[in-house]
Structures are given as C-alpha cells and as structure tokens.
Design a binder for these strands. Structure first.
Lengths: 234, 234
DNA sequence: GTATGATTAAAACGATCGTTTGATTTGTTC
DNA sequence: GAACAAATCAAACGATCGTTTTAATCATAC
C-alpha cells in the first residue's frame, strides 16, 4: 500500500483494480460467464468505469491479456537472447524448451501477484476460438514464435520441420493443461499431489521424451528413424 | 432420411435435432455463449421444447455429453477387455495408450456424424471448471479411468505410480489439444497441414516418448533412472 | 476562489437471457 | 368419432446483460 502526496494510504488505481478483478473472474467463469457487474463489484468501482477506462468488455479482455503477455514474452525473448549469446549459435533442445516454457511455468508458480490466475485464464482461452481473441493473440505471439521455432529447427537438424511443429503443438497442449491445473482433468485422472515445485522437472522430462521420440513410421522421413538412446537428460 | 408408416419422409426426431444443434453450438461458443434461442432456431424446433424434453439448459448440456461419452467409454472398455483377454495379463504401454486414446482419435476423425464436433466440445469443456460439469464428468469417467490406470501401473512396474499419473495428465493435455485442433494454438505455432490421417501415428510416437522418458532427477525414485533404449515403437 | 479537465456516481436505456404459461395440435387407443 | 396423453406452439414472465447518459465530485491550474 503506497501513499499519495498528502500522506493518505491508497490502493491500486481504478484501472489496475479492474484488471485484477476481471483477470480472476474471466479465469473462473470465462468471458461470457463474467458480467460487467461482477467485475465492478469485485473491483469496488462504479459500473460505468470499465467502459470509461477501457471502452468495452472486449477491449478490457484484451487489456488483461496484453498486460501479462507483454511480460511473459519479454522474458522469453530475454532468455533466448542470453542463451544464443552465450552459446554463440545453436542451442540444445532442452535449452529451447526451457526458454519457452520456463517463463510460463514461473508465471504459473506466482500465486501472489496473479500470475497463476492469468495462466489459468490463458489455458482456457486457447480453447475458446472466439474471433476477436485469435486476432490479437497472433499479434502478441508473432515474434516469440518466430524466434523459438527457428531455434528449434536448428537444434534438431535431423527432424523434419513439419514433425517439429506437430510436436511443438503437442507440447503446448501438455504444458497448457499442466499449468492451468484443470480440475476436470484431475477428476478424470484421480486426485494427486500437485506440488508446484515438482511440476517443472516432471514436465520437462516428459516434453523432452516426446520431442526426441523416434519418428513414427511412414511420416515422410527419408532418413531412418532416430534410434539414439535417450539417457538421463541435461 | 427414413420414413414413417404413412410413407412420409421424416428427419431425426426433436430430441436428436436439439442434441445435434446444441453440440455444434456449445463447441463453437461455449455454454454461456450459446443461447436457447440459438439452439432452437438451428434445430428448427420451438423454443419451449428444450425445457420440455430436457428440463433445463444445464440438463441439455449434460445430455449432449452423456450421449457421446457413453459410446466413447464403451469402446474403451471393449478395447481393454479384448486386449487383456488376448494377452492373458499384462499389456504393453503402447497397447494401453492405444486403447485409451484410440477411440477418442477415431471419434475425432468422424466429421460426418458429429464426432469431431463433440471432441472439440470435450476439449474446451475440460478447461471450463464449472461445478455442475465436474460433477457428472467424474461419474462418466470413473470406470474407464480405474481400469486404464491399473493397466498402466502394471505395464510400467518400474515407474512410480505418482509419475505415471503425472504423465497421464500431460498426455491427456497433449491429446485434448491435438484433437480439438485449436485454432488459437495453430495461430501461435503457425498454420501447418493437419492431415487427420497423420495425427494418430505422430501423436502416438510423441506420447510414448514422453511416457517412457527418463525420470527427472530427485523425483523420489529410489531406483536408478530408466535408461532403456527407446527404439522404433510397436 | 474559479475555471477546466479528468474521474466517479446514480440511473436508465433497449436487448436478450432462461424459463413458464396456457392454448392448440398431434398421435394413439378404444 | 371420443377420449386421452404427448408434443408443439405463440406469447409472455421477471431478471440480467453491455452500454450510455447526465450530473456530481475530484484534482490541478491560474
């Protein structure tokens, strides 16, 4: 809690309170399941203030994503810049995965500043193909995706690019579900101890195993399947 | 198109038309984004008929799932019954995965009878943790989950059960995303040819690689890491 | 203090929501 | 055809939706 010039204690300003409240409510109830009145009530602001500060409910939704994705993808770019500078060129697959999924896992582990809440929201939004969502999502991700796919191609020169894209797709699904910690899935697979500290090593091992799995037969790979022994990683 | 006793051409009855229409609309717009009027208009039935035949919107949503999950999980149980009878006991990991994910992939490949539509709906519903959804989902899945987790434990006697549950969780995420063919993710990873026929072998290879990946360090596994060579599968 | 712009406040807008009502039509059984 | 239940219909219910309007309050300049 900071103070203004008169020494009065002040909380976050109106726009921040709205963003925080809607992040939580959108994650819990989805876009259509969250009403403006739910948001403004939780944020303790006037109903009209959302339209005043953001323009519309859709614009508010975008603003919620922009705030977090800017930070998330900045960390991802910093990571790949640092790694490529240190290694001087080609990265290892585990490095690429770490750079891409590491920041997401870190944000998901942040339960104090809403990072965890946002990653839950992000996970469920991937499955809501509303048009206005897809549009701004592509823009937010463009640079990061370009950098990391290129790095992954270089890290796995023997694997066809098409296969890499498929596996990147699979990996994003696994990570997204693991992060959003979906209750429905936990019900399906039975409850289990979901110690967040154990998530990253477990998930990384699984992803690397899948990424470096032998190629399927008849997948258009002219070279024989990769039969390299997968030993303990890292 | 069948005929009644008078020789008049008749389409599906009212309840079926409602189920088909709502399946499509729920998959596209979600539960809250789909109105009763959208459903009844597309099904070409009277607005009141949903409440007459199903009772409420929530009950209709459940009915949409019950119809498909009954069939899906019946196929899964038939598969594991057949395999266990043939093998006489312990199954291979690839068999367990095939029995569990195979029927889902087949249903997802069915674009003519709505199977594909439903699997998209199922994928997005996993991420919508509405309480009434979780409740009936657990019931629908109970038997199948029990059977397959048991089979997977037996198939991987050297892997701690907790690790298996984690990886099952990861796999369901990967499969769910791959199946629902999420547009947002395709945008993120860039468009790629999504030939449905290639999905199953690619996905299976990825899943097996992840499932049999070396255990992460410090995961509480007393036994040394599994360094078995992962050769071409099957 | 007073003017000025930014923000908050209360109230209402028309539209749409899920559901219910009561009448009408349809199908089946004597 | 009469009787009866099942199904469909048009119409309306109160509640809630996102947004807008107009006035009141606030902060900052002169």
């Amino acid at each position: 809690m900071s103070e203004n010039q008169l020494g009065h204690a002040v909380g976050p300003d109106t726009t921040t309170r709205i963003l925080d409240a809607s992040e939580l409510l959108f994650a819990e109830h989805g876009f259509d399941g969250t009403s403006m009145r739910m948001i403004t009530t939780r944020a303790a602001v006037n109903l009209a203030s959302v339209n005043y500060h953001f323009g519309s409910k859709e614009a508010l939704f975008q603003a919620v994503f922009h705030r977090r994705l800017l930070e998330l993808n900045r960390h991802r770019l910093e990571a790949i810049n640092r790694m490529e500078a240190e290694s001087g060129g080609v990265l290892k697959p585990s490095q690429v995965l770490d750079g891409f999924f590491g920041p997401a896992l870190e944000m998901a582990a942040d339960t104090e500043n809403g990072g965890h809440t946002f990653m839950r929201l992000l996970g469920r939004t991937y499955t809501e193909p509303a048009e206005f969502i897809r549009n701004f999502m592509a823009v937010e991700y463009a640079e990061v995706v370009e950098r990391y796919t290129t790095a992954l191609y270089a890290a796995l020169p023997d694997v066809p690019k098409a296969e890499i894209v498929w596996r990147l797709h699979f990996m994003m699904g696994a990570v997204s579900y693991a992060i959003s910690g979906i209750d429905a899935l936990a019900l399906v697979t039975g409850r289990f101890d979901d110690d967040p500290a154990q998530l990253k090593p477990r998930l990384t091992a699984f992803l690397l195993g899948g990424l470096r799995a032998p190629l399927p037969e008849g997948a258009g790979n002219s070279a024989p399947a990769d039969t390299t022994t997968t030993r303990r990683q890292k």
